[in-house]
Simulated assay, not measured.
Amino acid sequence: MRYMMILAALTLAACVDQPQSGAQIFAAECAGCHGADARGDGPYARGLETAPPDLTTITSRNGGEFPTNQVMSTIDGLQRDAHFSAAMPEFGAGDLGATVIVENDGLGTPVPTKLLLLTEYIELLQQ
Rank of each mutant, 00 (worst) to 15 (best):
T68K: 11
R61N: 14
L7T: 11
E29L: 14
A8W: 05
F84W: 11
A38P: 00
D54V: 05
L55K: 01
I101M: 14
R2A: 15
G63M: 09
C30T: 08
T56F: 08
A31M: 07
G97R: 00
L115M: 12
T56G: 07
Y121H: 14
C33M: 07
M5L: 15
P67E: 04
G94S: 14
A87P: 03
V71T: 02
G92F: 01
C33N: 03
L10C: 08
H83C: 04
N104H: 07
V16M: 12
A9H: 03
A51C: 12
Q126E: 10
E123S: 11
L117T: 00
T50V: 15
T113R: 02
D54M: 09
Q70F: 05
V102D: 06
Q127T: 09
D95P: 01
P43S: 10
A9K: 02
A31W: 02
E29A: 12
L7Q: 13
A27K: 11
Q24G: 08
F91Y: 15
M4R: 15
L12P: 00
G47K: 04
D37V: 07
I75P: 00
T113E: 06
G64M: 05
E65V: 15
M88W: 01
L7D: 14
T99M: 13
L116M: 11
Q18H: 10
L115N: 03
M88S: 03
F26P: 00
L115H: 04
P52H: 04
I122Y: 00
H34W: 08
E49V: 06
Q70C: 03
M88K: 03
T113D: 02
A51Y: 05
L115I: 08
Q70D: 08
L96R: 02
N104V: 07
F26M: 01
D41L: 10
R2C: 07
D105T: 07
T56M: 07
H34R: 13
V102Y: 02
L12T: 12
T113P: 00
F84S: 10
V71Y: 00
F26C: 00
G108K: 09
G35I: 05
Q127N: 11
E29C: 06
T109Y: 13
P110K: 13
G63D: 04
H34I: 10
I58W: 01
T113C: 06
T99S: 13
E49S: 08
G64Y: 07
R46K: 14
